[in-house]
């Protein structure tokens, strides 16, 4: 074999796309920090944004990168929320261990349901994910489960201890805000690591061409289950976070609308690029807060309309449009 020089190797290395952490990644967090000082009124809203950003990021990993068309991602969110709630109620009010428990339950849910769901292809995946999420929703609502889940009343009455034993959750939601920001940063970094890893490249390959992937000797179902578990753990963290900052877990944390809205956020922002989840969730939650205050059903009308038009005219989402334009204007090179 011919001897390779450094330049050749470096040239080939450039052929591997990178998603490294750069200064752009700090922007959302800088923005969030600025908001704390200049728009303190909106801290609870900001906390809601962060919960949804974390959830949308987890969905992006499964759907945007892995091509798993999950309509039932709320199953992870809800499992995480109930896990964190029950942990706080019966075991310990310490928040970080609560999140860890939620993440483990999420990963476990992925490990149990993944092999069943991911053997299938296409529409069957959509239906199975939907059926599992609906089943869990019904299960939480049964009178047999009511002593545990609280049924339609939900879980409440639990306390969350101060973060690191120092920062207690205050009435203005300051601690909740920083706490959520920390969780989102953690979720984002995990996503980045996964996307950049050899596994991340394999995931993109599976989305592009699962048959070729098998013919490279890769057990596609097993890798997809791994992805489903990671994504499920992160989604459950988002659910756990929601339980901890709102101190309430209702049946609606397992409702289809949570899955549906996350899909809207992702497609609005742009799937398969992580930033899309951040932008989409931020825009969606901020707008829905304003609009829902005025008229929830008209807001639904607008969301539906935007979704239909987005599929037709902007399938790449907001971030995709920005990337297109900046490329066309020569700001960035491919």
């Amino acid at each position: 074999m011919a001897v390779l020089d450094r330049d050749t190797i470096n040239a080939v290395r450039e052929g591997f796309t990178r998603h490294r952490l750069s200064w752009i990644d700090t922007l959302p967090f800088l923005f969030a920090a600025l908001m704390y000082f200049f728009a303190a009124r909106y801290l609870p809203l900001g906390t809601q944004v962060m919960i949804q950003v974390a959830f949308a990021l987890s969905l992006d990993l499964a759907l945007g990168y892995g091509g798993i068309d999950s309509l039932g991602h709320v199953a992870f969110f809800g499992m995480g929320a109930y896990a964190a709630g029950l942990y706080a109620l019966y075991v310990s009010s310490e928040p970080l261990s609560g999140l860890a428990v939620a993440a483990c339950i999420g990963a476990l849910t992925g490990l149990v349901t993944g092999p069943l769901v991911l053997r299938a292809r296409g529409l069957t995946v959509v239906m199975l994910t939907l059926a599992i999420a609906t089943m869990l929703h019904e299960l939480a609502n049964t009178s047999a489960m009511k002593p545990i889940t609280g049924g339609a009343d939900g879980l409440f009455g639990f306390k969350i201890a101060p973060v690191f034993g120092m920062f207690s959750f205050d009435l203005y939601g300051r601690t909740a805000y920083w706490y959520s920001l920390g969780v989102v940063a953690f979720v984002f970094i995990i996503c980045k690591l996964v996307v950049n890893s050899p596994f991340g490249l394999a995931v993109r390959g599976m989305r592009d061409n699962p048959v070729r992937m098998r013919m490279l000797g890769v057990n596609v179902t097993a890798r997809l289950v791994t992805l489903y578990c990671v994504s499920g753990a992160l989604a459950a963290m988002a659910g756990g976070l929601s339980a901890q900052v709102t101190k309430l877990v209702g049946l609606d944390s397992l409702a289809f609308l949570v899955s549906g809205n996350a899909l809207v956020m992702l497609i609005l922002g742009g799937a398969g690029r992580l930033y899309g989840a951040i932008v989409g969730a931020t825009v969606f939650v901020a707008l829905s807060d304003r609009a829902a205050a005025i008229d929830p059903f008209n807001w639904l009308f607008a969301v539906g309309g935007v979704l239909i038009l987005a599929v037709r005219f902007a399938p790449q989402g907001i971030v995709g449009l920005i990337a297109d334009w900046s490329q066309r204007l020569g700001w960035v090179r491919r």
Partner: peptide, 28 residues
């Protein structure tokens, strides 16, 4: 017609959008 060629995800999103619009209209 728009979503015949977009693949499954596009169809799911478009029809969910349609459901939202119909739900809002019915309520109105």
């Amino acid at each position: 017609r728009w979503v015949y060629a977009t693949g499954q995800l596009g169809q799911i999103l478009m029809t969910i959008g349609l459901v939202f619009v119909v739900v809002a209209t019915a309520n109105l």
